[in-house]
């Protein structure tokens, strides 16, 4: 697949960009400014123009939120589709890709989910493995394996299916400055990280919010779509786990409770 080779070419450059260009400059809106203000960034953009999907980014001068799809009107979100998701991801527009992913899930879950505007946990079973895997694959491809449901599934298992631990790990909860160690949910969208940087936690995207609890995410992660992918990841995991920059205590706890799975079967 063309994109795969593209990613392998592109991502190392991303890293060098982040390392040299500073942290704030890589948000989508900042990126557009950069293309006019910062010659260093322009040179990078030009360099990465070898990929056709990125070309649109560097040439887009408007402030439209979805520069990858100039055809779509800015204020009415386009019909979600795998293709759209692919284009957004290829453009590195994780913010929109994240929206699209949620919209896509609702689409795939059926008519009543569409009317309701969210997916009820028990509707996840009606989404086909192929569709979920396709979404996951796009995310992984365009994030060098950092994002995607299968990545989240692995981290979740590592957290012994404890969602708090998982949320902390993927950076969906932030530590509070209180006497006791405790965490609160990050505010959407401002407190999330919409680009890949060194400190963007693994599994940070796509976001499935916990507004309605964790059962929806739990059912996505336990969907047959992500069952076999586990073992492939096991080895990769051990190599990257050292990079986790989360707070130390969070890392220490799992050691003691390796075998612990909350038992809620009655």
């Amino acid at each position: 697949m063309a994109n795969a080779s593209l990613q392998s070419l592109l991502l190392p450059q991303h890293h060098s960009f982040v390392n040299t260009g500073g942290s704030h400059e890589s948000s989508p809106s900042a990126l557009l400014k950069l293309s006019t203000n910062n010659s260093g960034s322009i040179s990078f953009r030009l360099y990465s123009n070898t990929s056709p999907s990125v070309t649109t980014t560097s040439t887009a001068n408007s402030s439209a939120p979805t520069p990858v799809t100039p055809a779509a009107a800015a204020d009415s979100p386009p019909t979600p589709s795998i293709d759209l998701l692919g284009r957004q991801l290829a453009a590195g527009d994780y913010r929109q890709a994240d929206e699209t992913t949620r919209a896509l899930l609702i689409e795939l879950a059926g008519e009543s989910a569409r009317r309701r505007g969210y997916v009820f946990f028990s509707e996840v079973q009606f989404i086909s493995a192929e569709d979920l895997q396709a979404i996951d694959k796009l995310w992984k491809e365009h994030s060098n394996g950092k994002f995607g449901y299968s990545v989240q599934r692995r981290l979740w298992e590592k957290s012994r299916r404890d969602f708090t631990r998982f949320f902390i790990k993927v950076g969906w909860m932030k530590k509070l400055d209180t006497e006791i160690e405790q965490y609160n949910y990050r505010a959407f969208p401002d407190e999330f990280m919409w680009e890949i940087k060194d400190d963007t936690p693994e599994g940070h995207l796509p976001l499935t919010n916990a507004l309605r609890g964790t059962q929806l995410l739990g059912n996505i992660l336990t969907h047959p779509a992500f069952e076999e992918s586990q073992e492939d990841e096991a080895t990769a995991e051990s190599a990257t786990s050292g990079q986790s920059t989360d707070d130390n205590k969070g890392k220490e706890r799992p050691k003691f409770m390796r075998d612990f799975k909350p038992n809620y079967s009655f």
């Binding site: 009820f120 946990f121 028990s122 507004l211 609890g213 059962q215 929806l216 739990g218 059912n219």
Partner: peptide, 8 residues
């Protein structure tokens, strides 16, 4: 959330 949790 509560309804989903209970049913799950």
């Amino acid at each position: 959330a509560v309804i989903m949790e209970l049913e799950a």
